[in-house]
């Protein structure tokens, strides 16, 4: 290979790398490296890309992984996903569709994003409801489960395999990100646990018979079809539904879905999983 070819190839690789890379402030970049570096050291041999399988990827889950793999041969969410895709494609009364709205929005790999004009974090859920309102349709009331979760899944799955790359550049974005970081590392509830206590410090450890998942890769597979929720007939849940459950379990007051706090937390978790390819939807225990 000629030198110029190598140079061209290198530039090409750098370029494609740059396209995938998130635009983040140096402080945020350091956080990502620290966070991901911790897990690379803790679970050597598991590549970054594999973390989109959640707890199933951890060596401590080996004995159970076979069951999950069998389940994934005919995933329980498939029938619902067909409905979800129909919901996504179904035109509004005015003939427009969700796709028309999201044409002017970032790809799912850039969600949630900080809206400089509105000075707030925008999630897919918020933009779905905005799209409905803008087209004279009723916004969806339940932001935790059911139809909303399925629509988010139908949008996100279109970007499956693409690496997550949320931007955190401007002052407002960094401030919002820091709120999420604070939430993640702060002790909470009567049980006095932070998110990090379980999902960073004790990831892979057993809490009774269950394995604590790694914080890295968290939320890449959302919305989820969860076996625990399926028992009550409502298997679909958004990230914020899960946050509410987590907060209740540590005996803290769960916050409202789409609250500023949960959106900030969602942003922090997304940023920590920069580079992990989306894999939507996912089945979780």
């Amino acid at each position: 290979m000629h030198k110029w070819q190598i140079a061209a190839l290198t530039v090409g690789i750098m370029f494609s790398g740059a396209a995938l890379q998130a635009g983040v402030a140096p402080e945020v970049q350091k956080d990502i490296e620290d966070f991901q570096g911790y897990f690379m050291k803790r679970f050597p041999g598991i590549p970054l890309e594999a973390y989109n399988d959640g707890v199933n990827v951890l060596p401590q889950y080996d004995e159970r992984r076979a069951n999950w793999e069998i389940l994934m041969e005919f995933p329980p969410y498939e029938t619902d996903m067909e409905t979800a895709r129909e919901l996504w494609a179904k035109p509004f009364k005015n003939g427009k569709t969700f796709a028309d709205c999201f044409q002017n929005k970032p790809p799912a790999t850039k969600y949630p994003y900080y809206d400089e004009a509105r000075k707030e974090i925008r999630t897919i859920e918020l933009d779905i409801n905005e799209c409905l309102s803008a087209n004279g349709e009723e916004p969806i009331k339940n932001l935790k489960r059911g139809k909303m979760a399925m629509l988010v899944a139908a949008f996100r799955e279109q970007f499956n395999g693409q690496q997550w790359a949320v931007d955190v550049e401007g002052k407002g974005a960094v401030e919002a990100y820091k709120k999420g970081r604070q939430f993640y590392w702060a002790k909470r509830g009567q049980l006095n646990f932070s998110c990090a206590n379980c999902h960073v410090h004790n990831a892979g450890k057993k809490i009774r018979g269950d394995v604590l998942s790694a914080g890295l890769g968290h939320t890449t597979g959302f919305p989820v079809y969860r076996t625990k929720w399926a028992v009550a007939g409502k298997p679909w849940g958004t990230v914020h539904r899960r946050y509410g459950g987590c907060n209740s379990q540590v005996r803290a007051k769960p916050l409202k879905p789409q609250s500023a706090e949960y959106r900030a937390l969602e942003m922090y978790e997304a940023v920590m999983s920069t580079g992990v390819p989306l894999k939507v939807p996912s089945q979780r225990q």
């Binding site: 450890k205 009774r208 018979g209 269950d210």
Partner: peptide, 22 residues
Amino acid sequence: LACHIVTTKKTWPAALPPGGNV
């Protein structure tokens, strides 16, 4: 038992799973 395994001198009840390892 969520986080600790416990050894007891008395017999552990068969219906009770052992604890975690946090």
